[in-house]
Write a protein that binds this DNA or RNA. Structure first.
Lengths: 232, 232
DNA sequence: CAGAGTTTGTGTCAATCGGACATTAATCGC
DNA sequence: GCGATTAATGTCCGATTGACACAAACTCTG
């Protein structure tokens, strides 16, 4: 069945799990315990199991890494990386997934066999194993684009959040500051983006902010384009 | 090396090659000569070869099917389809690619071993083999979206084309009619979208139209959004 | 050759949207 | 109470867009 003409490959999954922590866009990394790239940070991942659905495998990996219900968070397929020399161990094709999670209050699964850690994306300068730098670049660009055209930003937020929280997500992911007034107007005028609650949250200083839940809309029409706004 | 835990898969490539022919969005299909799905139309494709790069394999398949220089046309990765039961022959993961080609004057590679034919997308109602209907749906949606945010529409056109040709591409792919005056203004005011030539083309009837080449810009900012325009 | 028919190219106008910015409201610390 | 700080609402104006008028250039027909 498997003739010489057909490449024999193993199929891996790699997850770029993004969040906004401490005012920065961060990605979940694991430290490699084996060669190659021993000791280097890498994106968490694993191999596809026998008879396992591709998307289900990604959900499983996400749950294993974040100890969160993978079905509830945002998880989308990013791309496939299949350069012949991308893994020195042999022909391994990797399907990369992009996951967006809120700032997790739980300790980041550090008790696992592998050491997991959140790293600021800006602090990673080509330091990841394999071709994971390229995967991360693609993941960040996808997330930036998603913020323009979908309501994905709410996936970065806790179940209940303020407009300021949402604006911070945009500012951190895009790396530019936005006008709070215009941002509020844009979000609140888009029906289905956020849903008002009757609660408020008292910050350490300043006027209390109204709290919102995510709405049922997923696509933003019109989009919120990252124009030539004031760079932070 | 390949433990029981790791699924053994074969990696296939499927191409959704789209064009605009005879005023309709069409896709290149091949008629399957073997079981399963013998006699049913399917997207052209093949298996990844040993040591072959993924994108290079897609370029090769495209050239085999259209006899055109794959490097010159638009070819992008679409998605991966990996449901366990998507192929009755066993575990086959498929990487789908979207290709956009102009209306080919050459006979559509009909002399090949497999019979290739252009089929209008609208005429295909769940008639493709495997999960190719879903792949085609995704490909069409991707193309529609690309027309909004990139200059991809020029890939549907011959090297030299009129604004009317370009508008026809939008109308056919989106399935809605556009105002010719506003469309011209939008295209011509976007620097780098099209490049003027000093030639004109005489249609069968009506005023001659100026001919343009594709410009060097790839992203459209601002985009041309398919709004609630008049449906054709 | 004149006029109808058709398509291209230029222009107008009003409604809407987006960016820049002012002002008021609510809370905390002193 | 008062200043500092952040939230929420509002104003203004230029840019963009959708709807539509009209002139220009060509072919076909009578």
């Amino acid at each position: 069945m498997t003739s010489r003409d057909h490449a024999v490959v193993r199929l891996a999954l790699d997850l770029a799990i993004l969040t906004v922590r401490e005012g920065a866009l961060q990605v979940l990394t694991v430290t490699r315990g084996n060669e190659p790239f021993r000791g280097r940070p890498a994106l968490p991942g694993g191999f596809l199991r026998d008879g396992e659905d591709l998307h289900a495998a990604a959900v499983r990996e996400l749950r294993e890494e974040t100890a969160l219900d993978g079905g509830a968070m945002h998880l989308e397929q990013l791309s496939v990386y299949g350069a012949p020399d991308r893994d020195p161990r042999g022909r391994i094709i990797s399907v990369a997934y992009l996951a967006i999670v809120p700032d997790l209050p739980a300790p980041t699964a550090g008790s696992d066999a592998v050491a997991a850690a959140w790293l600021p994306v800006a602090a990673i300068r080509g330091g990841l194993a394999f071709d994971h730098d390229r995967i991360l670049d693609d993941a960040v660009e996808r997330a930036r684009s998603r913020l323009e055209f979908t309501t994905l930003a709410t996936a970065f937020c806790a179940p209940v959040f303020t407009i300021g929280d949402l604006r911070t997500v945009y500012e951190v992911v895009w790396g530019q500051s936005l006008d709070p007034r215009n941002f509020s107007r844009k979000v609140l005028s888009t029906v289905g983006f956020v849903e008002a609650t009757d609660e408020k949250r008292n910050p350490l200083v300043g006027r209390p902010a109204a709290l919102y839940r995510r709405g049922d809309r997923t696509v933003l029409n019109p989009p919120i384009l990252r124009g030539a706004a004031t760079v932070a």
